[in-house]
Amino acid sequence: MSEAVINRKKDRRKEILKRYGLAIGFVSPFVLVFIIFTVIPLIMGFVISLCKYNPYDLESTTFIGFSNYLMLFGNNVLARTFWQALGKTLIFDVVAVPCLIIIPLGLAYLINMKPPGYKIFRAIIYLPSVISITIVGVLFGAIFSDSELGLINAWFSSENPIPFLSDPVLRWTVILLASIWWQTGTNFIILSAALRNVPKSLYEACEMDGGSRLELFIHVTLPNIKGSLGIVLFNTLIGYLNLYGQPTVLNSAINRNNIESPMMLIQQWLNSFERSSLTGLISATAIFFGLIVMLFTFIERYLMKDRKGGSKYEIQYKAYEA
């Protein structure tokens, strides 16, 4: 090959390198971090779950297949605690998730009437969403405290202070109230934006068709915020299946060490040095729980999907024409 050709090849290679070099340069930090902190852990997690593993004693690693997973269905401490915690969380979620959608929706509806000062109202409702759960815990712990110094108990100064945080049902109620106060803001903002984006002409058309206020809401408002409702439902569902912060910070001496949700289980067991030989088991539990969460999300996505119509009317119309 002549020198000119070789030079051209070199130049082209340089150019390609230059072209792609920048792209690679841009993407690589992300991909690097992603691989180290997301991909590798994922693979590792799966592998660990199939072994008996102790991070502090790596030589003792042995492969034991799926027996870790089977433990979850056996009669042992782990299984019982896990399923109990899952049950408690699910029951709570059945109450909490609808609250966290309907209340923000109602507030969004109110704020869209744009009363004077609505911007301030908006900021106030959203404010709790940016503070951490521990502060929420401090606050609600003090207000709903068991002792007679707690605000609520002090107001209704009766003989026996109400054990807000000790009694199981009351405690979950306090957790519910705290959750609502804490997280209504985010959903509220998203839903209020969605409400504003409903085309006004649709409301007018429905009015002209004879729709009452309720019918306007059902036929115009709801269908047109379906997308945002789906997102809100998705986020809230995931957040509350992974319930962790609220039960951790809202407790009293009696139930401080109770495990109320699967995430708490995983967290606590991981934390304890005595259980470090059970790391394989914990990993299996985490993966199993993760799969349950994924199942829920897939169901939710499927339910919220747009349906395509069939062709029943077309057929009937043809019959009518005949």
């Binding site: 007018e204 004879g210 269908p223």
Partner: peptide, 22 residues
């Protein structure tokens, strides 16, 4: 109210209900 006025209106943006079929 609009519905009692014996009128029907066609809007510039058609204003069809997006979740219902024709």
């Amino acid at each position: 109210p609009s519905k009692d006025r014996k009128m029907a209106m066609v809007f510039q943006s058609y204003a069809l209900y997006p979740q219902m079929n024709v």
